[in-house]
């Protein structure tokens, strides 16, 4: 429908929707600001113990300090690096294994109970072993991150691969398609939505792996800042790190959402 022949009611309808969306956004921001103000006031009048909770202006001052001496970007850079590598490694490896399982029903059945077991196991319990085996540096942390996301990736992607309509595969067979062609032309493209969902889940999971890894061994990174801040009771440092973590995770999630929109053509 073109804009010129839009009826008056429809115009009103659109403006009311826009207005409502705007109100919701403003309220969301207001809730955040109000929360911060309350926190600040409560700290100021000593209603809360600032030793345990810190307060916004103190966190902000610390943030400025850390940015000025460049320390903060060093820590963020390391954690983001570990997460991105872990995220890509876990997703890619899981994806490849899922293709292998789709290819061979035999191995899919052989590995099925192991996957179920690994999936229900809290992967972070493996972190100490992994770090001892792989090493206490970046590599140990990255492998921990991979171990957290790989199993979910395998299971989600395999599930999606085998859910392709049987008649569709039949159709491809009447064309004389090879197994590889079926994979390439139908199975992989129809699994793109599942892949995007897996990417979204894996961002969070990779961060879990990295933070746990950093808790255990690191000398730098956001996880290190949190542990260090906790040990010396510098709660402003802990709070700042958590805020930064939240913001970076959201940013990474947004990037995946942008990729998703690219595929939303159909």
């Amino acid at each position: 429908m073109s804009k010129n022949n839009m009826s008056k009611e429809h115009k009103n309808y659109l403006t009311s929707i826009k207005k409502r969306n705007k109100t919701i956004l403003i309220t969301q921001i207001a809730v955040l600001i109000l929360g911060l103000i309350l926190w600040e006031i409560a700290a100021h009048f000593k209603w809360i113990d600032t030793f345990l909770t810190s307060y916004p202006s103190q966190i902000w001052r610390l943030f400025i300090n850390y940015t000025k001496n460049g320390n903060l970007f060093h820590h963020i850079g390391i954690s983001v690096f570990e997460t991105v590598i872990g995220f890509m490694g876990g997703t890619l490896l899981g994806f490849v294994v899922a293709i292998g399982l789709w290819w061979s029903k035999f191995w899919a059945r052989v590995f099925d109970p192991y996957l179920v077991m690994l999936n229900s196991l809290p992967k972070t319990a493996l972190a100490p072993i992994i770090i001892i085996w792989v090493g206490a540096g970046y590599s140990g942390i990255i492998v921990t991150a991979i171990s957290v996301s790989i199993i979910v990736t395998i299971m989600n992607m395999y599930e999606s691969f085998v859910s392709v309509d049987e008649d569709l595969i039949k159709l491809l067979n009447t064309f004389g398609a090879t197994k590889f062609q079926i994979l390439k032309k139908v199975v992989l493209p129809s699994s793109i939505p599942a892949l995007i969902n897996t990417l979204k889940i894996n961002i969070g999971l990779s961060w879990v792996g990295v933070i746990v890894g950093e808790f255990l061994v690191s000398k730098a990174g956001i996880g290190y800042l949190i542990v260090y801040g906790g040990q010396v009771f510098k709660l402003d440092l802990v709070m700042m790190s958590v805020f930064i973590l939240a913001i970076i995770s959201v940013l990474m999630y947004r990037i995946v959402a942008i990729i998703e929109n690219k595929f939303n053509r159909w």
Partner: peptide
Amino acid sequence: YMFQKDQLLEW
């Protein structure tokens, strides 16, 4: 071969 569903590829 034609099926109940058209089996067109959405992408």
